[in-house]
Design a protein around this nucleic acid. Sequence first.
DNA 1: TGACAAGTAC
DNA 2: GTACTTGTCA
Lengths: 249, 249
Amino acid sequence: MISVLILTNHNRFSKVLKQVFIDMNKMLLINFQLSGDVTGLFIRALPVYASPDFSGIPVTRCTVHSVESDPKGKAHSSGFCNCSKYENVGHVIRSQSSDAQYYYDDLSRRHSVLVPLRKLQVGSHSFPIGYYFTCKTSCPGGMQRRPINIIFTLETACGDVIGRRVLGVRICSCPKRDMERLEKDYPKGKKRNYEQPSKKIKYSPSCSYSTDESDTCFTKLSEEMNDLSKILLEFNEKVISLSQIVNLL
Amino acid sequence: MISVLILTNHNRFSKVLKQVFIDMNKMLLINFQLSGDVTGLFIRALPVYASPDFSGIPVTRCTVHSVESDPKGKAHSSGFCNCSKYENVGHVIRSQSSDAQYYYDDLSRRHSVLVPLRKLQVGSHSFPIGYYFTCKTSCPGGMQRRPINIIFTLETACGDVIGRRVLGVRICSCPKRDMERLEKDYPKGKKRNYEQPSKKIKYSPSCSYSTDESDTCFTKLSEEMNDLSKILLEFNEKVISLSQIVNLL
DNA sequence: TGACAAGTAC
DNA sequence: GTACTTGTCA
């Protein structure tokens, strides 16, 4: 049984919007609740634009933030990724984990971060992973106000995807204010159509990630891993009151 | 006798604030009124931060706008400027003039644009130069809300500065709104202290440009050019009503 | 936390 | 031109 528990209280999770509101560079602690032996498995976190209009475009750092680590744009100058030499400059999602692996897919041109699951501590049922974000959803020349989701996938060492879970995230300067406003507007959702940036680069359709309703729960992807496919997702916005876990499913 | 006349009505000039409000990429037509033979002379336009805190820092394009012309940051990768090969990427101030020369000073690391003055048309007393701006005053990773002045210098072919004039410019999306608000606040001038960007590069003191009160009129710089030193500056924010010229001196 | 600043959509 | 968005200062 695997569930996901959000444990930070610095930040906000809206049950209504199924979305986390968090400031840049603040930690979002996600507690993956696990049972059985999960060593050898990985959790991948990959950011995807929530709107189908943009879901084919990789989510990357904005230009202003990128130049801090890579002033000359060398990390991605030849079409492939040399992020690791430049403080992982292209990665919007980072993990606090010391054994986090930063990953780049040549085909989709997407950056993601992979954290290996380890044997749980005795008496513990959860595996905490701290994430943080190095750009705002509003960053000009980057996400440009386009909402994103994080796709968490549970993967084997071979890269087989066992489970999949989508979490909306808004990285902004005023998480509280913005969450209150967006909840107030819900479900009218008066979202504005922001100008679409010019898509100079075309991406193959296979690189487009679906984030529709079927993804709001972990999806069973491989028959042979049936025992792992029954997955619960639980959220909680407080670190302190762990008892107030709200099951979303 | 040389005076400066602002002729655009797309944009605004505040007599109170002695400042032009203009949108990006819109033309600011400046009419240099001249008498006598001025062939062989040049008008240089150089942007400078208005606040003494920043006047030592060159005004350059923001990162978001720069990547459009120079995705890999090659134009200034080696400390010197290769702007011309990259659509003059570093220049905030551009001129419509076909014979505009884009200039870079190695010592101060400042970009400026030089327009040669030509023989006036028969019956005309003014030399119009169209300028436009390729970044906003608010651009993140660029001017960052720091107000700028344009320093216009009248120069000989040798680079001797004969006259000097400072004009405040605010490049923004809503020139009208912003001008009205700033005029309303004047002279209280409730300006906010925005966070100072980290100054990684130190510039020599000689590169700092004064924009204090003494610069609000053309300054006589060379005794021998005395005949050119009596200079008037006139502004007008309407194209149509040229008769409403307001002499500021 | 409230108010302001300034870009962007309608 | 109005109103909304969203960063930033106080």
